[in-house]
Design a binder for these strands. Sequence first.
DNA 1: ATAACATATTGACATATTTATATATGTATG
DNA 2: CATACATATATAAATATGTCAATATGTTAT
Lengths: 104, 104
Amino acid sequence: MELNVKRTAAIFKAFCDENRIRILQLLTGGEKCACKLLEEMNITQPTLSHHMKILCDSGIVEGRKEGKWMHYSISPEGVKNAEKCFEILTTVKIENENKSCCSE
Amino acid sequence: MELNVKRTAAIFKAFCDENRIRILQLLTGGEKCACKLLEEMNITQPTLSHHMKILCDSGIVEGRKEGKWMHYSISPEGVKNAEKCFEILTTVKIENENKSCCSE
DNA sequence: ATAACATATTGACATATTTATATATGTATG
DNA sequence: CATACATATATAAATATGTCAATATGTTAT
């Protein structure tokens, strides 16, 4: 299976910022409204909004608008997709005998 | 299980740069010498060295020195550890009834 | 020892990212 | 419709990251 490199980078951006990791930790407790996340994080509202955009763009998180509130949750499909990318990038295909190139 | 946020960010830095993703793709073909990676990538030697450092710091890649050559490969333990972090951050604990906070 | 080679480190620079303040947009309510 | 409130966007500053040229380090062969 082929891998879209740009897309993959975008997916894992979700996991490489400390604030976003904390947001994900909060979301493992179930769907949460932006205002609730804001309460629990020590950042301003626009900063949260910025991180939520990156999380949603990654596909790991999805947003649901309800009136003036945004509810965020972890997206099972996004997670599944990320898992697949992770697997592609970390599974060694052939445990080949020829150890690299230079030694022999 | 508890998660070290800083450490987790470092782990997933491996996957959020396009060049590093390409390097990982190459390494899924088995252990590779730095010079071989350099051939296949379109970057300078110091840039490769920089990315290899980040990859090794993440634990996803490990280096093996053999004379003047560095051989890089995907680390099964590093991958296992990253999988665990991924799971912690993407597994919703309780499918709780109370949908968020604001709506009700 | 010296030369040649592979890789790492340093320093400089361009670009990207994170963050906050100020402002805009959208939505419910009096 | 005016007001209040939740969230998004624009803008700008501070910081981090990616990149390369130059140099240093470490290793092998002469």
